[in-house]
């Protein structure tokens, strides 16, 4: 690792691709959306060059692990080709669905947490891991509604998914804050309920706070700095999930690289403080 290099990674988005090649910013690693690098042409060639200097994580958004009809074989094959091409150190997807009846709804849509859904997601995760020849991490979603019939708490659903498939988890701390605020959960208790040994990555991002008629709605828009309550939750997550690599995501109104690096350094300070505390004699 270079001197001054961050431990935390950042999401590499196209506005910063040229800067990554020209300046080699001191970032520990990068994550990209897998779907943007599945074809040919300049974008994947850029990623191949970046890959020489930085560990890369592939974060899928289109596999639809929650689809009752199963996952799209062609899309899975395209993801497998991307995994072979870029040799990522992490591969992740979402506890969500976006495909039904052959229509792709371009969003991470919510699942009811039932035995039926658990069986569907487990089958799809197992199929993905089989095709990719490796373990994937599954990310907790941000929620704006709950199903009336959804008897399994989300952390328990994720823990059982891990037990059945051997997958890991991507703990998105911002998503926990968003869901907890929108649905009235206890965010700290959620983190305590996740299976710590399964956490392979942590995400941090900004959200939008919409306050109307005394009601607060949080929207997970990745368009601003990480909010203070999310940093507080991250302290808890970092102390519980130890050395899991942390990523700063920022997808809209993308700021300068310097600002992204500042967010990554802030995450590093949190993990350094946690390590120091754990190293103290009891």
């Amino acid at each position: 690792m270079q001197a001054g290099q961050t431990r935390a990674g950042i999401g590499l988005r196209s506005p910063h691709a040229a800067a990554f090649e020209a300046e080699r910013p001191p970032v520990g690693w990068v994550e990209v959306h897998a779907e943007n690098y599945m074809g040919g042409g300049p974008a994947p060639r850029m990623l191949e060059r970046v890959r020489r200097d930085y560990p890369v994580s592939l974060h899928g958004v289109g596999l639809s692990l929650g689809s009752a009809e199963g996952i799209d074989r062609d899309h899975l094959a395209a993801l497998a080709r991307a995994v072979r091409r870029f040799e990522p150190f992490l591969v992740s997807e979402h506890l969500a669905w976006s495909v039904t009846g052959g229509t792709y709804l371009n969003d991470l849509l919510p699942l009811p947490y039932t035995e039926e859904a658990l069986a569907v997601v487990s089958r799809n995760v197992a199929a993905a891991q089989e095709a990719l020849g490796r373990k994937i991490l599954v990310e907790n979603p941000s929620a704006y509604l709950r199903f009336k019939h959804s008897p399994i708490p989300e952390p328990a659903f994720l823990a059982e998914l891990v037990r059945r498939t051997g997958c890991g988890l991507l703990c998105d701390v911002n998503n926990i804050q968003v869901s907890a605020s929108n649905l009235g959960w206890d965010a700290a208790a959620y983190i305590e309920a996740l299976p710590a040994e399964a956490i392979g990555e942590i995400h941090l991002a900004g959200h939008f706070r919409d306050e109307r008629d005394g009601r607060v709605l949080l929207i997970d828009d990745h368009a601003s700095p990480v909010a203070e309550p999310v940093w507080d939750l991250y302290r808890r997550a970092a102390s519980r999930f130890g050395e899991a690599p942390t990523l700063i995501e920022w997808d809209k109104d993308i700021p300068t690289l310097a600002i992204l690096l500042g967010e990554a350094r802030k995450a590093d300070q949190v993990t350094a403080a946690v390590r120091e505390r754990h190293a103290l004699p009891v």
Binding site: G101, L105, P112, T114, E116, V120, F147
Partner: peptide
């Protein structure tokens, strides 16, 4: 069922 929920979501969206 999960299929019905997902079709209902598609129709809603």
């Amino acid at each position: 069922s999960l299929s019905e929920i997902q079709r209902g979501f598609r129709d809603a969206l």
